[in-house]
């Protein structure tokens, strides 16, 4: 376990201005994301939780762009923030007042969840640090959207079709489950 090597990730200021700027951007984004995520799972107001989720998702979009995956970043904004969060807000609206504000009564459950969460963090973090050491991300150029399109429609055509069928099935399933009759 080489913890120092991982922490070095934030401070190699030797790689020129771009690297510095990227590292600063990453630092800001990651702090914002982790804080927002923590607030999301702990806040008692469900609407606030949805807004914190927006912050985390936007941060993830930023991370994608930082990694040179512009198309994924834009899709993240469009689909996640544009569609899925709106869906969540509808869900919240339709189930308003379904739950009393007596969350703190269940401390035992929280303790268990904290325990499991920390366990997950320790094990995955440990595994990551153990495996990748100081592999660097030095992408020479952002990935091209055209290349993504080509690959999806040739190499990944079958999974792509499968996903489209899945979406259709989910659409029908959602209607069947939620209809009133």
């Amino acid at each position: 376990m080489t913890v120092p090597a991982a922490l070095q990730g934030l401070d190699p200021l030797t790689g020129g201005d771009v690297v510095v700027a990227q590292n600063i951007a990453f630092g800001i984004l990651s702090v914002v994301m982790v804080v927002a995520a923590l607030r999301m799972v702990t806040t008692r107001n469900v609407v606030h939780a949805a807004l914190y989720l927006v912050i985390v998702l936007a941060g993830a979009a930023g991370i994608f762009i930082l990694l040179g995956a512009e198309f994924v970043g834009v899709t993240q904004v469009l689909v996640y923030i544009g569609a899925i969060v709106v869906l969540f807000l509808f869900g919240i609206m339709l189930t308003r007042g379904a739950l009393g504000e007596d969350e703190e009564a269940n401390t035992e459950k929280r303790r268990m969840a904290t325990l499991v969460g920390v366990l997950v963090l320790v094990v995955t973090g440990g595994a990551v640090l153990d495996s990748f050491g100081d592999t660097a991300v030095n992408r020479s150029a952002p990935s091209l959207t055209a290349e993504i399109g080509d690959t999806i429609f040739s190499q990944y055509i079958v999974p792509f079709e499968a996903v489209s069928v899945l979406l259709l099935a989910a659409l029908i399933g959602a209607i069947v489950v939620a209809r009133t009759d």
């Binding site: 991982a6 690297v19 590292n23 994301m33 640090l129 592999t135 030095n138």
Partner: peptide
């Protein structure tokens, strides 16, 4: 940038998600 910093961020988000 190191690969690990992204993976650790992801691990943190994952753990928070599990907690939620």
């Amino acid at each position: 940038m190191l690969l690990n910093q992204f993976l650790l961020l992801a691990a943190a988000l994952f753990a928070i998600g599990v907690y939620g």
